[in-house]
Design a protein around this nucleic acid. Structure first.
Length: 920
RNA sequence: GCCCGGAUGGUGGAAUAGGUAGACACGCAGGACUUAAAAUCCUGUGGGCAGUGAUGUCCGUACGGGUUCGAUUCCCGUUCCGGGUACCA
């Protein structure tokens, strides 16, 4: 009986499905553990071998935790709404509902072959009305709440209305779009529309007329994380800044909490750093500068108030509201020309030309509040309207951008901090002593900053202020394939639907493409209005809406009264382990945390952070293969000989190549143009060249997991993906070497089955040597799983099986625990072997074996080395031995005694289980 | 530009509270079995030099320094590679 992985895997997959072996229920008697994968976007291309990497790792961990006695929630679903699904649908001319359904079916088929322990009864799909009613519900809650900085949480909007009626905005500290100031009487005098406009300024889901990322290629606006280098992340279309009225989520209200929360999370430092940078907290001072000949003041933001004596000019963003007012008649023409020029430059050009210095003097002067100096006011597009106040004091001596500007316009450069060489460049470092700075001269920079913060407030020139780079999330998309907003308009005032009207279902439209007028596709939907005839919102929600709370829905997926019941949420709480790609750092992982914190404020969830521990699996890159055609011929030359010819490098399908050796017949059949190919071989083989590239169809380097499963089995695929290297590291997929893992599983099989094909397990008691091998493996494997070091645990298995094979071990006492140990990695073969051992229950019901430290004792001193009066011994110690016990063991060891030669050691340095230094 | 990682045989990678560098696997070479091939198994495999040989010896963890009895590991500097971010004041 050979290791027939096809039959074994089919058998157990069917049995797990039939028995619903991985179904999980809340169980107060067991500790819970929630393991989550980032659910996939069901694209048309299907899964390649890179996709399951994280799923395999989380599946191993889930199975391990189950064996350790935890009640493990390990669900899976589909992120099925959004741009890529819609783009794919438009390209193929099919309805997105149809393509999505097909793609999901294909994904499911592929996933099932790999033997995951998902509880499929909990599957969610973001495009399912029963699911997205809770996305709409959350939106309504955000619409009905505002963020009160005084209480530090979201509060009902009614509370704000009551406050306005009683006191107006007096004493209000709430997150808002623009600061407002009105009295109770003024509020009472407002009509419904005016009041709503005020409330929109505070609601957590709100409409605003702001600069947005408009992508003409996709016909929609995009959030900041969906744009990179001026291009859309999806599709790579140019994106421009445009003023439009859009729905937004007031994510910035939570900026500080999103930042603080990171400290509690077990995420990689690099991921936390990305989020910290994205939030971009900067502590500085708001300072008002006087304006020569004007009553108004000019408000600026600076993180370096200590350098205020070195400010030699001011710069305003071209869009700054004071520009028209400040510009003097003689400069009006030049200023208008500059404004015209900057308007024409696209966002992309502006980014590409960041080194180019441009700007225009306005003719106006500001007055430095500390020394009365009159300094010229410029406009320039290196100052952004959207950050701080859109105006800066320029200190060319200590800011590189100001420096470049000053050099270009020959403006004075006054050093106020010692250090650096101002002939060459500015001195930006926050260290050194202040000079030329009146009362702060001689202070250290850090001290000077502190003094100036205090001084600015004392003199009433401004106050300390914290700015964030984080922007509110643009939440509407002018597309079809997304959640409809539960919003209708009455006299142009937005109203949310009553919760009992949810879900508001997406109308089934055959013509779902972009409209010619630029309106969203829903504009074409018949009867897209309430029963009373009020029109619904035409935009739909963005891709991240559906993925922001899916982890909560898995806790209680069939509840039609709540997103998640209090009981289910109190039991499962939050995700203990989240595995997924780092590309979601500034998107999904930010929005989910925001969404969760909001629901936490409202008391719907009991944890304020959704994902306790997060592991980023590295991307699997493609490994392409090449053949070398001699130019102008049909002859292909092997890689080792190609230097002797003038050749052309051609990508060849990696599935025609094994261990870099080309399947010649397969190649001839691959494409008609190669049917007559001739080959120049080396050592009778055609060796291909290779390179690491992105995995893509055009490089012919896509490896489909189905093919691997077909040829080697799911267990081999699972173990090989883990063996490939550290989980978090990016690495190329390389099928070379998969034989080694497959060979390992066959060796495991042969421990149970003899040459004649019979199960040959004995009940003989194991020897000490066999037990040592087993317990060492148990220790190594369990520690490695806890540390996510799956590649080294696979190695540990290989060493173990090599040793057992050498001993000829077929003993139940060894093989039984080994089977359990192996089951998280290779569950199918483990189940089969478990059954062979005579167990009728599944290996799942077993307990993970514990190692016994007694069997980890090494037998003798391995080697003594003597130098300079010190000796080193590797000695035999239980892993649990403390320093005292280890020292005693050394002194008692006859070999050590021999080398000590009767002398008393001065000092014994002991590392239990490891190395001992003896200083004689 | 700034921030964060990383660099170990022909290849993927082990080993870092400093202590036998190269586990495990691939590949390669040789051998066994076989009419043959595949599969399987065994042996060898960082490099140089010396030796018939067991073996000995020197050099080796990107490069240059430093600390230490001892450095892949710690410190300083340099080069290259990967990722994030970018007129954010």
């Amino acid at each position: 009986m050979e290791y027939n992985f096809r039959e074994i895997e089919r058998k157990w997959q069917q049995r797990w499905t039939a028995e619903k072996a991985y179904r999980v229920k809340t169980d107060p008697d067991k500790p819970k553990f929630y393991v989550l994968d980032m659910f996939p976007y069901p694209s048309g291309a299907g899964l390649h071998v890179g996709h399951p990497l994280g799923y395999i790792a989380s599946d191993i961990y889930s199975r391990y935790k189950r064996l350790k006695g935890f009640n493990v929630l390990h669900p899976m679903g589909y992120d099925a709404f959004g741009l890529p699904a819609e783009q794919y649908a438009i390209q193929t001319g099919q309805h997105p509902a149809v393509t999505t359904e097909n793609n999901i079916a294909r994904y499911r088929e592929q996933l099932d072959k790999i033997g995951f322990s998902f509880d499929w009864d909990r599957e969610v799909r973001t495009c399912d009305p029963a699911y997205y009613r809770w996305t709409q519900w959350a939106f309504i809650q955000m619409f009905r709440h505002y963020y009160d900085n005084a209480t530090g949480k979201a509060e009902p909007i009614e509370k704000l209305e009551t406050r306005f009626a009683e006191r107006g905005t007096e004493g209000l500290d709430a997150a808002c779009t623009v600061p407002m100031d009105f009295t109770a009487d003024e509020w009472k005098a407002m009509d419904g529309k005016e009041r709503e406009n005020v409330l929109q300024n505070y609601r957590l889901a709100f409409r605003a007329d702001t600069l947005v990322n408009w992508c003409p290629g996709l016909g929609t606006v995009l959030a900041n994380d969906e744009v990179k280098d001026g291009l859309s992340v999806r599709g790579g279309f140019p994106v421009e800044q445009k003023r439009m009225k859009q729905w937004l989520l007031r994510v910035t209200a939570y900026a500080q909490r999103l930042l603080d929360g990171l400290d509690k999370l077990q995420w990689s430092e690099s991921l936390k750093e990305i989020q910290r940078n994205w939030i971009g907290r900067s502590e500085g001072a708001q300072v008002f500068f006087g304006l020569k000949g004007h009553a108004e003041k000019l408000e600026i933001f600076t993180t370096r108030p200590d350098t205020i004596f070195g400010a030699t000019f001011m710069v305003l963003a071209p869009e700054h509201e004071l520009v028209p007012q400040l510009t003097t008649p003689e400069y009006r023409k030049a200023v208008e020309a500059y404004l015209e020029e900057t308007k024409k430059r696209s966002e992309r050009e502006r980014i590409a030309e960041t080194k180019r210095v441009s700007g225009q003097f306005t003719g106006a002067y500001a007055v430095n509040p500390f020394n009365g100096a009159e300094i010229p006011i410029y406009i320039s597009d290196y100052v952004l309207a959207g950050y701080g106040t859109g105006a800066i004091m320029a200190v060319p001596a200590h800011d590189s951008r100001d420096y470049a500007f000053a050099k270009h316009f020959s403006l004075p450069i006054i050093p106020v901090v010692e250090g650096g060489d101002l002939e060459k460049e500015s001195y930006d470092a926050k260290e050194g002593k202040l000079i030329n700075s009146d009362f702060i001269t001689g202070l250290d920079v850090k001290e000077a900053i502190r003094v100036m913060f205090a001084e600015v407030e004392k003199q009433g020139l401004g106050k300390k202020q914290i700015n964030y780079r984080l922007r509110d999330a643009i939440f509407s998309r002018q597309r079809y394939w997304g959640e409809p907003f539960p919003v209708y308009y009455k006299d142009d005032i937005p109203h949310t639907l009553n919760e009992d009207k949810l879900p508001l279902e997406l109308p089934d439209m055959q013509d779902f493409g972009p409209t010619e007028t630029g309106e969203p596709p829903l504009a074409r939907a018949a009867n897209w209005k309430t029963q009373e005839g009020y029109p619904y919102e035409l935009s739909t929600m963005p891709g991240f809406a559906g993925s922001s709370a899916y982890y909560l829905r898995y806790m209680d997926p069939h509840n039609d009264r709540e997103l998640v019941s209090k009981e289910a949420n109190a039991y499962w709480r939050s995700v203990d382990l989240y595995v997924g790609g780092i590309e979601h750092a500034t998107g999904h992982l930010m929005y989910s945390r925001f969404w969760n914190k909001f629901l936490y404020d409202l008391g719907y969830v009991c944890e304020d952070e959704p994902f306790k521990k997060l592991v980023n699996q590295g991307m699997i890159q493609g490994r392409s293969n090449f053949v070398y055609r001699i130019k102008g011929t049909d002859t292909f030359v092997s890689a080792g000989l190609k230097d002797g010819y003038d050749t052309q490098e051609i990508h060849v399908d990696v599935n025609l190549v094994r261990n870099d050796v080309l399947d010649l017949e397969g190649f001839r059949k691959w494409r008609p143009e190669f049917a007559g190919a001739e080959f120049v071989l080396e050592d009778g083989k055609y060796v291909c060249g290779w390179a690491v590239e992105k995995m893509s169809k055009s490089m012919y380097n896509v490896v489909n997991p189905d093919d691997i499963v077909e040829n080697y089995g799911a267990d081999t695929l699972r173990m090989y993906e883990m063996f490939l290297g550290p989980l978090e590291q990016a690495k190329p997929w390389d099928t070379n070497g998969i034989d080694g893992v497959h060979k390992f599983l066959r060796k495991v099989w042969r421990l149970f089955v003899d040459k004649a094909g019979d199960v040959a397990v004995t009940d003989e008691p194991p020897t000490e040597r066999e037990l040592k091998t087993l317990h060492r493996t148990i220790k190594k494997v369990s520690e490695d799983i806890e540390n996510f070091s799956f590649n080294t645990s696979v190695s540990a298995f290989m060493i173990c099986v090599n040793e057992l094979t050498e001993y000829g071990t077929r003993k139940r006492g060894i093989l039984e625990p080994l089977t359990i140990l192996l089951s998280p990695f290779a569950p199918h073969i483990a189940e089969e072997l478990w059954e062979m051992l005579g167990h009728r229950d599944t290996v799942l019901n077993a307990a993970f074996p514990q190692y016994n430290p007694e069997y980890l004792v090494e037998s003798t001193v391995e080697y003594p080395v003597s130098f300079n009066g010190k000796m080193r011994f590797k000695i035999a110690l239980p892993a649990t031995a403390d320093a005292g016990a280890a020292e005693a063991a050394v002194l008692a060891d006859p070999a050590a005694a021999k080398y000590l030669d009767g002398k008393t050691p001065k000092k014994v340095i002991v590392v239990p289980g490891k190395i001992i230094n003896i200083v004689v």
